[in-house]
Design a protein around this nucleic acid. Structure first.
Lengths: 236, 236
DNA sequence: CGCTAATTTGAGTGACTTCAAGCACAGTGG
DNA sequence: CCACTGTGCTTGAAGTCACTCAAATTAGCG
């Protein structure tokens, strides 16, 4: 199967076990069926761009499987990663709701299957299902709270503290395998774009963490050895 | 009238000309009357705290008149100002919607009159008025978009650029008087807590901007002399 | 009361330190 | 072989500390 091919077997929402699926889990069966009927579904390979900053998008995406990074591009072309999204998360809904152009770019980190749901469906659901509205608001509010935390961290913490914190955050969102290895593989540059620093700084600090016995490095795989230690470094 | 006194003349929502009042402007007359009946109203002096990070709030506030700063407190006690709110803005609704503890503190910058509306009313409106829901979501999404911009700026721009940008941002939100003077007076420390830097750095940079002819300083009043110049410094 | 004296608060400066960015270059591995 | 990783070195931006000065508040006291 080539890249970007239309998915031949469209995953069914009702059987989609993507963890959480916070947003759709309280829909009535007939509402879910509506979503099923109107949605489309595609596969994307690492590096593929789902939507780009400044473009108009006429719907939002629900991640069936995979990992996506959401980032803004700074004035000098440097990426600032805002968040990662994975199985069960929705992306692009901010632009739909606010009817603005996308203010971020979404790009695939790990091969992904996405369902696309047109704007009209979202507004329909908001208008007819107050429970759905509230859940959507709570999602937005959660993101807003996280963004506020992030602002405070970047403004006040050192790069060292922030890197430790990001590692912990990644651990919480993507878990560790049985060997304590982070289940998301990022390049040093992606880590840097998340922390808001230079790639070299990340490299140096990672090997510092390694020699301090907090982590172990095997290429892009990061094994966490000393969780409390990292917590301390991060000032949590 | 002493400080913090209960307001004897509760301002009427229907006659409240607070600019925008984005959230309430599309309510039906009977809905507005419900809000009127259930709300309470208080006056606060500069320095008064409306609600504190970590506290539970059982309603949200609508600013009838005044200016409020919303900030988080970093691990070493340093404030990080997230945003300012003024006449017509609502604050505290994030915690209400997400049913979490307040993640920020709200403090009065300029003497303020606030209306307090209990949580239940907010949820009632969301459940019965889809138009209101959508507007509330759009407000949250707008804030989220601004937060994302802010993250990128703090992570990538220099203190100098950020200070210039903040001045422009304040100009857009609070306007200038007929003499081009910013209509919000902040201490150097508050500016620093907004930019995410040390007070001394703000002082130094402000006098740099002054000697470069961009601004004029008269205590806390800042007069803007060269708007395009500031835009250039801010990399806009 | 009313008028200094004392204290506090914010603005501003200078000297010093440090963190982290930038550049150049050398491995390395898919 | 090219993108990614890693290292050494240099430089600069910005934080910290220590202090002065002015204005504003509060206290003290005849």
């Amino acid at each position: 199967m080539g890249p970007y091919t239309k998915n031949t077997t469209i995953p069914s929402c009702s059987e989609c076990i993507a963890r959480g699926h916070q947003i759709f889990k309280n829909l009535a069966p007939e509402e879910l069926e509506q979503v099923e009927n109107i949605k489309s579904c595609n596969n994307y390979k690492r590096g593929a761009t789902i939507y780009q900053e400044g473009s108009r998008i006429n719907g939002f995406y629900c991640i069936h499987h995979g990992i996506i990074k959401i980032f803004k591009t700074g004035f000098d072309g440097k990426e600032q990663i805002i968040r990662f999204a994975q199985s069960g998360d929705i992306i692009g809904y901010r632009s739909v709701l606010s009817k603005e152009l996308a203010c971020t770019t979404a790009q695939v980190i790990e091969d992904t299957t996405l369902c696309f749901i047109p704007s009209a469906m979202l507004f329909d659901l908001v208008k007819t299902n107050p429970e759905f509205s509230i859940q959507l608001m709570q999602l937005t509010c959660k993101e807003l709270g996280e963004a506020n935390n992030y602002i405070t961290d970047i403004a006040q913490k050192t790069v060292r503290e922030r890197l430790a914190e990001i590692l912990l955050l990644l651990k919480d969102n993507f878990d560790l395998d049985e060997n304590q290895v982070l289940q998301i593989a990022l390049t040093r540059e992606e880590l840097a774009n998340m922390v808001g620093t230079a790639t070299e700084s990340v490299i140096r600090l990672l090997s510092e963490f390694k020699s301090d016995g907090y982590i172990e490095l095997h290429g892009r795989k990061i094994k966490i050895l000393n969780l409390p230690g990292l917590h301390k470094v991060a000032n949590f």
